[in-house]
Amino acid sequence: MQIGSADYQTLVKRFSKNSRTAKNTLNAFWTGGLICILGQALLDLFDSQKHLTHDEAVAAVTVVLVLLSALATGAGLYKPVAKFAGAGTLIPVTGFANAVVSAGLEFRSEGLVTGLGIKLFTIAGPVIVYGSAASFIYGVILWIIKTLA
């Protein structure tokens, strides 16, 4: 007797081990927190530079974190850490950088233009696409409010 699709889905749920959420969440918490402490130290450093505005200091922190992430990714260190840290290394801006840099390394073998150039944002692309789409909509709303006022 062949089992039906609905019955089988129930069976699969029963047989599939779940992720160890408590442990994963704790690891994500403290690794993500540590990256933010590093970010805070950098922010304090750049804030103390007279020629930078606060917004520019925030951007400078991002640039440094992206650089560190790129170096770690290139040296093959990011992946083993991320395997342990999960969202702790995914959610900070370092995770965004890792998605871009790892794609660059991977698809370099298909050429600088046809591989690297085309595939660079193969994972991180949606972040930019929907982030800027959302900010555009927000901008239009702001403009309408401003025009009406």
Binding site: A28, I91, P92
Partner: peptide, 22 residues
Amino acid sequence: QYLLAFLIGGAICAAGQLLIDK
């Protein structure tokens, strides 16, 4: 400020982990 950065940043990441796992 460092403690706050750790706790808040960590909590945002932990929430992401819950989304991945659950």
